[in-house]
Simulated assay, not measured.
Amino acid sequence: MTFHIEPVGGILLVLAFCVGYFVYKHTCHGATGKGDVVGAIGCGAAVLTALILVFGGSHTESVPSERGAPSALPSDGPR
């Protein structure tokens, strides 16, 4: 199964992955020597959400409806 990711969305996803990776690597230097996976995922998700809100917007073109403009009067004929 494949699906299309818009270029802007792909770039934002890669940036969020990078932030999550760097957060994980930064937390590896603690006393236990294990990285904080949950913190890294949460940070990556927060960064992705913020970037989508800033850059994501609606990048789709609005397509006019096939029905045309709505009319003020019903189209069932004169009464």
Rank of each mutant, 00 (worst) to 15 (best):
A50E: 06
L73M: 06
V37H: 05
F3D: 14
K34Q: 12
S75Y: 01
E66W: 05
H4P: 01
T27N: 04
L73P: 00
V37L: 13
G42W: 01
G9W: 05
S62C: 08
R67L: 06
L13T: 14
L73F: 03
G35A: 13
S58L: 08
T32R: 07
G30F: 02
G68F: 02
G44R: 04
T60V: 09
V38T: 14
F55A: 15
S58R: 10
V23P: 00
P74V: 06
F3K: 12
Y21C: 10
A45T: 14
P74S: 10
K34F: 03
Y21M: 14
L73E: 13
P78K: 12
V19R: 10
L51P: 04
R79E: 11
F22A: 13
R67V: 09
E6Q: 09
M1G: 13
S58Y: 03
A45Q: 04
C18N: 10
I41R: 00
K25P: 00
G9T: 09
V8A: 11
T60R: 10
G10V: 05
T27M: 01
I52K: 09
T27L: 02
T2Q: 09
L51E: 06
A69K: 14
H59T: 11
P64C: 06
V19Y: 06
A45G: 12
Y24H: 14
L48H: 07
G42R: 03
K25R: 15
T49G: 15
H29T: 11
G10C: 08
G77I: 00
P78S: 14
A40V: 02
L48N: 08
T27R: 02
V19H: 04
V63T: 15
S62K: 09
G30W: 01
E6C: 01
A45Y: 00
C28G: 05
C18F: 10
C18K: 09
M1P: 00
I41G: 04
S65W: 01
A46K: 00
P74M: 05
G10P: 00
R67G: 15
T32N: 12
E66L: 10
G68S: 08
E61L: 07
C43A: 13
T49Y: 12
E61H: 03
A16K: 06
H29E: 13
A16I: 05
D36G: 06
G9V: 03
G42K: 05
K25E: 14
C28K: 12
P78L: 12
G35E: 10
Y21V: 11
V63K: 11
Y21F: 08
A72W: 01
V38K: 10
V8R: 11
A46Q: 03
